[in-house]
């Protein structure tokens, strides 16, 4: 079997299995935990509203800190939206998802995907530079942060390389692209990238707690 057939066959299949096992494992493990009993008098019983409230609020940058956080927020939004556009807007990707789930939707012209892919790479590089150059960020970063960054940027770079026929024969670069996606899938549930599933759960839980305590958010 050649590398490409191997990558998009058994290796991708295993990566998906690991992804599903890991994601369900971690989600179930967290959701089935018993919350610590809280014997205090609740200040409010609208905990669900509190949860929803914080999910929205934390998504919008706070005005008081807007100036300081603008750069970080912007690159964060750029690469997250960029990733979504590239993964869900490129026709070969949509056809892959269709082959897996049966779901499909209209795609974007490839040219737009390439431009968005390039912007995504730029924003991810800026995020890394910020992480390294900001002393506080550097202090709180561990290997997980850097590895998660690397497995996030790898599929975007290799995808662009394949499309540009850069770095080797197309099937080889494409195989590396698929392998980088496999690495991302297999790693996602076990490190900080799990935030994709956990951010809203975490924010909601915090929001509910805040509401109960009557804390202002």
């Amino acid at each position: 079997m050649d590398l490409l057939t191997l990558a998009r066959g058994p290796i991708l299949q295993w990566a998906l299995v690991i992804f599903v096992v890991g994601t369900v494992w971690r989600l179930a493990g967290i959701l089935l935990l018993r919350r610590k009993p809280d014997y205090t008098e609740p200040r409010s019983t609208h905990t669900w509203r509190g949860a929803a409230n914080l999910i929205v609020k934390r998504t919008v940058p706070k005005r008081e800190f807007a100036a300081q956080t603008a750069f970080g927020n912007t690159i964060g939004y750029v690469f997250h939206i960029g990733l979504a556009v590239v993964v869900f807007g490129f026709v070969p990707h949509i056809l892959f998802i269709k082959s897996l789930t049966g779901l499909s939707w209209p795609g974007l012209p490839s040219g737009i995907v390439y431009v968005v892919g390039a912007l995504t790479v730029a924003a991810l590089v800026a995020a890394l530079v910020r992480r390294i150059s900001n002393p506080v960020m550097r202090l709180i970063s561990n290997a997980d942060d850097y590895f998660s960054w690397a497995v996030t940027i790898a599929p975007v770079i290799t995808g662009l390389m394949a499309a540009a026929h850069w770095g080797g024969p197309y099937p080889t670069i494409l195989a590396i692209h698929v392998l980088s996606v496999c690495l991302l899938l297999a790693w996602l549930p076990f490190g900080k990238l799990m935030h994709a599933f956990l951010v809203f759960i975490a924010r909601g839980t915090t929001g509910a707690l805040f509401a109960r305590k009557g804390a202002s958010t």
């Binding site: 058994p10 599903v20 096992v21 494992w25 892959f96 082959s99």
Partner: peptide, 25 residues
């Protein structure tokens, strides 16, 4: 770009989800 699956990918992922739920539980 369609996946080259061996056997049924749907079944594999179903088993994977059950296994994950058992581990998480």
């Amino acid at each position: 770009s369609a996946g080259l699956w061996h056997g049924s990918i749907g079944e594999d992922l179903g088993i994977a989800a059950v296994a994950g739920a058992v581990l998480g539980g």
